[in-house]
Write a protein that binds this DNA or RNA. Structure first.
Lengths: 104, 104
DNA sequence: TTGACATGCAACCATTTGGTTGCCTATTAT
DNA sequence: ATAATAGGCAACCAAATGGTTGCATGTCAA
């Protein structure tokens, strides 16, 4: 879980996920396209995404195809974000109460 | 959004959010309790959470009370995670197909 | 008023991070 | 066969990160 959060912390990596979400199964060079970064930097980002199981790869000849694995993102939503949904309104009304109390 | 992701990337910070979720409105010293970290380290973490609007604070005398603001977490769920939910099954079956193709 | 308590501020430090460059290997196309 | 293409590996670097220590400030209680 920690690896996933860390992987998602970087905007470049999130944009790589976006690109794979838009079109799955891209090669490294395709993913580099239009980015203000060297290929090697992208390789590193993809390695981090792969270590976090957010991306899976297949070798096809001399190309490496990258596929999005949406499961970890789904789990973050299920196991982590949902926890904070419960009591969200309660927490907000409490906050509001405090904000008002400040002016007394 | 980036600040929120970065703030959530650290396990200590997530555990601080957990603690506030369990009991809202704790002071700095209460939040330090039982953590293997100095008070100043916790202060820094809370500052990052506050900058990301994940935590709001009120001064009450010499104490500083910390409140969880669940809105950014909710937005991550709504605006970001949900995007990847769409097509989740499609992506998975595609992945499965690729995995099988590998053995040909 | 004086000491204890809650927090703030700043300098410093080691490690991690995000990036680079240079070179090497493997596969494909001519 | 050979050149071009796709990618891998490793060393290096600056900046950010997560943590520390030391001291200052503001507030409460005796």
């Amino acid at each position: 879980m920690d690896e996933v959060f860390k992987a998602l912390a970087d905007a470049s990596r999130r944009s790589l996920l976006d690109r794979l979400h838009a079109r799955n199964g891209q090669t490294l060079n395709e993913l580099c396209d239009g980015l203000a970064m060297t290929r090697q930097a992208v390789t590193k980002h993809l390695a981090i995404l792969e270590a976090a199981s957010l991306v899976t790869t297949f070798k096809h000849g001399r190309e490496k195809l990258h596929y999005l694995n949406p499961v970890p993102i789904h789990l973050i939503g299920e196991r982590w974000i949902r926890k904070f949904e419960r009591g969200r309104l309660a927490a907000l009304s409490e906050l509001k109460r405090q904000l008002e109390k400040r002016d007394e």
